[in-house]
Amino acid sequence: MSDSPAPERPLEQNVFDEWPDAVRALFDGSSLASKMGFTASLLSVDASGHIRSSLLGVGELYAPDSRTLCIALWPQARATRAIAQNGRAALSFVCDEAFYQVQLRVKPLASVAGDDSGLVYLIGSIDTAEAQSVRYARLTSGITFELAGERETVLDRWERQIEHLKQAAAGASRLDA
């Protein structure tokens, strides 16, 4: 027998059922301009078994509490239709030097008075979730983007979308109470 210590696990997996603080801060609906460029991938499976993906920014994601996530999607997106069919989706992204994958149970939110965006609002609850990281490498970003000439227009739209998600989420919590 060797007296040497056991080798360190290269992969760290942290399972969670509530958003870690760094993720809550990312999805809190504030300071959207400073979070510009962040992208999450929302994955769903359609009736034919095909995986559908929608790339979302912080202006389309809002966590009203520690276990839920509100999502704004375009109605014509294939992921929107797939989620409507089975009520499930997975969100993957990079945050705080880790890769996150969150399985969500998703249902529609009621529309918001005065919202003429045409967006579909959904609310998802965490089913299972994990963050993965390795000690020998830091994840510095995932999929990122840069807006070409429309930064203020998009940021304004995101501010409105987040407000609508907040209103829809507040309405859903009143119904659940």
Rank of each mutant, 00 (worst) to 15 (best):
S133V: 06
T80D: 01
L119Q: 13
V134N: 01
A79M: 10
V134Q: 07
L43R: 07
L104R: 06
L139K: 01
A110M: 14
V134A: 01
R24E: 03
A98G: 09
S30T: 15
E159F: 00
P64H: 00
A148S: 11
S173N: 04
F27W: 06
G59Q: 11
A82T: 11
E12D: 08
A98E: 14
D28S: 02
Q167K: 15
G49P: 07
R138H: 01
E8T: 05
D127C: 03
G49A: 02
S66P: 04
R9C: 02
A84I: 12
F99L: 14
P75V: 09
L147Q: 09
S133K: 15
S66E: 14
E18M: 09
A47H: 07
G114V: 13
S92P: 01
T128K: 13
A98I: 13
S117Q: 03
G171K: 02
G59I: 15
L109V: 13
S31D: 15
L56C: 01
V102W: 04
D65L: 06
L11R: 05
E12W: 02
P64F: 00
F38N: 01
W19K: 03
S54R: 13
L147H: 10
Q167R: 15
T128E: 14
R174Q: 14
G142Y: 03
A137F: 06
A89T: 12
S66C: 04
Q13D: 01
M36V: 13
L61V: 05
I83T: 07
T68C: 06
R174H: 14
A177F: 07
F27Q: 01
S44H: 04
L69G: 00
I143K: 03
P7Q: 01
A137Q: 09
S111C: 09
T39R: 02
P108M: 06
S44A: 15
T39G: 00
D156G: 07
G118D: 07
T153N: 03
Y121D: 08
R81V: 10
G114M: 09
P108Q: 10
H164V: 12
S53P: 00
S133C: 08
D17G: 02
F145Q: 06
A169Q: 05
V58D: 01
L55R: 11
T153L: 05
L43H: 10
L175I: 14
E97T: 15
R9K: 06
D156F: 05
D28K: 03
M36C: 05
T39V: 14
T153I: 10
R105A: 11
Q85A: 15
A25Q: 11
G114C: 06
A113C: 08
G118K: 11
A40D: 00
A90Q: 14
L122G: 05
T144S: 02
P20G: 02
H164R: 08
L73Y: 02
T144P: 00
E159A: 15
R88D: 05
D46E: 08
S44T: 14
R24G: 04
R135T: 14
T128F: 04
A33P: 04
R151K: 11
L32A: 01
R52I: 10
F99N: 04
E146M: 12
D176Y: 08
T153S: 06
A148K: 11
P10S: 01
